[in-house]
Amino acid sequence: MLDRMRSSPGVQKLMGLALGFFFGFLLQKGAVCNYEVIMDQLLLRDFTVIKVIFTAIATGMVGVYAMRAAGLVSLHKKPGSVGASIPGPLIFGLGFGLLGYCPGTAVGAIGHGALDALVGGLVGITLGAGLYAVAFPWLDRHVLNVGDFGDRTLIDVLGPRYPWAVIVAAVTVIIAGLGMLEYIGY
């Protein structure tokens, strides 16, 4: 049943549409598609973005690893390297601050009428992604594989035999961190 659903391109397009709908709905209701909310996060004055992301991480982690233990899902880990995981994301960060939206929230911002997210954001991100396709062969040869460290997880590093100890610890740290933020007045 799951396999048939996952391998049907038609069903999956609908599924993408439906999941995307709820994703956009939630991002909008969380106010994290607002330029001001994102910039205030980057200026460390408002922690709404961090609260949303870390709550999603903690919730997602428990469910995904539980389903994996039950044999229902497989993980999808992207490999990392010094050449890929640092310079690219720093350039992304520069753009994040200039644009005031990330790719998902730029699309979400269009939903409440932010035209800078449409003309600057959507066009710019697409253009940037297209330029990357041109640069890819060179980067792939010279940069992306420098300092490759694969798709190792915190579980692999801390305790491959006790995955749930690592997961519980990670969730505990996240909840404690969020509680601390609330406590100090954010």
Binding site: I53, G88, I91, G95, F96, G97, A106, G124, T126, G130
Partner: peptide
Amino acid sequence: ALAGGVCVGFGARWGRGCT
């Protein structure tokens, strides 16, 4: 915004993912 968008698109693909 456009310059930022270009950096976001380029950097996201370089880094193999976004936020």
